[in-house]
C-alpha cells in the first residue's frame, strides 16, 4: 500500500455479497409464491408452461452462461495486465447481455400479440391458473430483465473505467463486484429456466 488512499478489498467484496444475499431473498420470495401457485393449479401451470418456447429459453440460457464466462475471464485478463483482452471480453459480455434482451423482446412480443399479458381480458377468460402462471412469468422474467439492464450499465461503467486506467491490475475489486452481480443474474436465470420453460 503506497498510502494515497485506504483500501480494503475484502470488505468491499463482503458488502457486495451482502447485497447479493438480499437479491437472493427477493427472488427466493418469488420462488415461494411460484411453488404455492403451482401446487394449487397443477393442470393450468402444466398446460400454460407448454406455450413457452423451450428453444428460445435454451438459447437465452446459453447466451447468459457464455456472457458470465466472458466477464469471469476478463478478471484473469486484467490480473495478467492484458488490458486489450480485458476490454474485448467485457465488450463481448455486454453484447451477449444485449442479445439476451433482444430475444426477450421478441419472446414477450409474441405473447402480447396473442393477448397474453397481465391484465389481459382474453387471458382472464382462460381461468385463474393461467392468469397466475403468466403473471408470475412476466413479473419474474421482467424483474430478471431489469437486473440484466442494471448489470449492463454497471459493466459499461466499469469498462469505461478500465479504458481510462481508473481500474488496473492492482485495483480491480470493482470489476470483481460487477462480475459477482452479473453471475448472480446468471444464477437466478439458471432457476427461472427450468421452472418456466422445462417443467411442464
Amino acid at each position: 500500500m503506497t498510502g494515497e488512499t485506504h483500501r480494503d478489498d475484502l470488505t468491499s467484496k463482503t458488502g457486495m455479497w451482502l447485497f447479493l444475499f438480499t437479491e437472493m431473498l427477493l427472488f427466493g420470495g418469488l420462488f415461494v409464491v411460484y411453488s404455492v401457485y403451482r401446487f394449487r393449479n397443477p393442470v393450468a401451470f402444466h398446460l400454460a408452461a407448454q406455450e413457452l418456447s423451450v428453444t428460445i429459453g435454451t438459447i437465452n440460457t446459453i447466451i447468459l452462461l457464455t456472457s458470465s464466462t466472458m466477464i469471469a475471464m476478463s478478471i484473469t485478463a486484467l490480473q495478467t495486465k492484458n488490458k486489450k483482452l480485458t476490454l474485448f471480453l467485457l465488450g463481448i459480455t455486454i453484447l451477449l447481455g444485449l442479445a439476451f434482451l433482444v430475444n426477450k423482446y421478441f419472446e414477450w412480443g409474441g405473447h402480447i400479440k396473442e393477448h397474453i399479458y397481465p391484465g389481459s381480458s382474453i387471458l382472464a377468460l382462460r381461468g385463474q391458473g393461467d392468469v397466475l402462471f403468466f403473471g408470475l412469468y412476466f413479473f419474474m422474467t421482467g424483474l430478471h430483465a431489469l437486473h440484466i439492464i442494471i448489470g449492463l450499465i454497471f459493466i459499461a461503467i466499469i469498462t469505461a473505467k478500465i479504458f481510462r486506467n481508473k481500474i488496473t491490475f492492482n485495483n480491480y475489486v470493482l470489476l470483481e463486484n460487477s462480475g459477482l452481480y452479473w453471475h448472480l443474474v446468471d444464477l437466478i436465470w439458471i432457476f427461472l429456466y427450468p421452472l418456466f420453460y422445462l417443467i411442464t
Binding site: S68, H183, L184, I190, Y193, P194, L198
Partner: peptide, 18 residues
C-alpha cells in the same frame, strides 16, 4: 431439472464467483 440447476449454480458459485 432442479438437480441439474443446482449443479449448474454450484459451478457458477464456486468457479465464476470465486
Amino acid at each position: 431439472a432442479l438437480i441439474i440447476a443446482t449443479i449448474k449454480s454450484s459451478l457458477v458459485l464456486r468457479v465464476f464467483m470465486h
